[in-house]
Write a protein that binds this DNA or RNA. Structure first.
Lengths: 235, 235
DNA sequence: CGTGGGTTTGAGTGGGCTCAAGCCCGGTGG
DNA sequence: CCACCGGGCTTGAGCCCACTCAAACCCACG
């Protein structure tokens, strides 16, 4: 929560070995650093709104962003989370469509905004960058297809177990096996695609089966293999 | 069903104004025509298998391809259909992963196979082509996100109505308002993500409500607006 | 010490699944 | 030509998962 005095930098985003920007030339990197201004975004801030125009993408240096669609009756469906190193919003910019999701900060962090024209310039100029973005989209598409199948065919119980494992994979666990991301029960329900009460009952069920332990929002993972078994995934 | 004597060509795929190949140079187009050999694929043939390596993509000149994942218990989940002008399999080739879906012909037609290295060469050489593929992936990603939300939040009834409208949009209707794609009840169920019996009951329900008419596999669309209303989509 | 957001628990219900049987129709072989 | 077969389609019965509604609890915070 304490404010940082030093000028924030986007080293993790831009210069990391796995960064999608790693194929840019030094000149392009300079342009990127020059054009973008990283800043701290606080919990609850909205980066972009479903259905509105989006004139750039966000690169996440730290923090967590939830990306969701709003259904017919106003219920959120969480599509994915973004964390350090991720780039979000590129779908709508590249497809030149209105945003199909809303992005909201759920854990404060440093992000930087990259204007659409700069992104498009890099796409045109750099086949390497272009290819990275393409791979990213294809990867997400594969994940989406998997989730469609799960939603269509698996029970809520299976899906919840699977989601817990996905969260472990993406955000990791601390020294005491606690999941590093903190979500409300409702948010969990909005990932799994079920009612809040169902998540509560199933979590409590998992706890009594010795698979997890619960302390408020902290979820301690006790038996990964048990969860894998329930999820019917992760072969 | 009658065999064609003339050499098949891929004009629709390659030279159409909306083709993703439209930004290729004449030399690249020649290379494409020279390298690929279009052929008729018959109903039931499998283009590629989920979980196996895929060493190229398919361009559909005519016919219909169903693309599906196989769930834990062997049930198919249809992810999308491909028709004339579509290109399929690029996801796995570009992400350099095993195929995440299976592709099977459900209506015979002319397709041509484009080897992975040729595709990748074009991606590297032609920013225009690269951008087209990127847009395609982004478009599909948007559709996938929408379907995730629908599966998670809508009833089977709503989803079935929506799927019927999607099929009208993609495949059109003939002079008598019959849907131009012919699917088994089971296939319909495998799109919607439900049991075959549920589809049958709901179709019969829609028929009694005057929304559609049924003659074997033919589905006649009588009331688009009624379907829209039920689907809670298409604003 | 109230207030409100999040969480938990219980009761009741119904959408949609499973299982089972029968029907329809085109194909096949005696 | 007819009997048989099999795949797809339809209908019915029963059940259970998961949703809804309602009430109470917890706890951080002003």
């Amino acid at each position: 929560m304490k404010k940082q005095d030093e000028t924030p930098t986007c080293d993790y985003c831009f210069k990391n070995i796995n960064s999608i920007f790693r194929h840019l030339t030094p000149e392009q990197m300079d342009l990127l650093s020059y054009t973008t201004t990283p800043r701290i975004y606080e919990k609850g801030e909205t980066l972009y709104h479903e259905g509105r125009r989006i004139n750039g993408v966000y690169c996440i240096e730290s923090g967590i962003v939830k990306i969701f669609k709003t259904g017919f009756d106003g219920k959120e469906q969480i599509i994915m989370f973004g964390k350090g190193g991720d780039i979000i919003g590129y779908r709508s910019v590249l497809a030149n469509e209105l945003a199909c999701t809303t992005a909201k900060i759920i854990e404060e962090g440093l992000l930087c905004f990259i204007p659409a024209n700069l992104l498009l310039q890099f796409v045109k100029e750099s086949p390497g960058f272009s290819y990275e973005i393409m791979k990213l989209a294809c990867k997400e598409l594969g994940d989406a297809n998997q989730y469609i199948t799960d939603l269509a065919q698996k029970s809520v119980r299976e899906r919840l177990a699977e989601i817990l494992l996905h969260l472990v994979e993406k955000f990791g666990i601390d020294g005491e096996n606690n999941l590093k991301i903190s979500l409300t029960r409702e948010e969990l329900a909005n990932i799994v695609g079920t009612a809040t009460e169902s998540v509560i009952r199933l979590l409590s069920d998992f706890k009594h089966s010795g698979l997890i332990d619960l302390q408020g929002r902290k979820i301690k993972i006790l038996d990964m293999n048990g969860l894998k078994h329930i999820s019917n995934a992760f072969p």
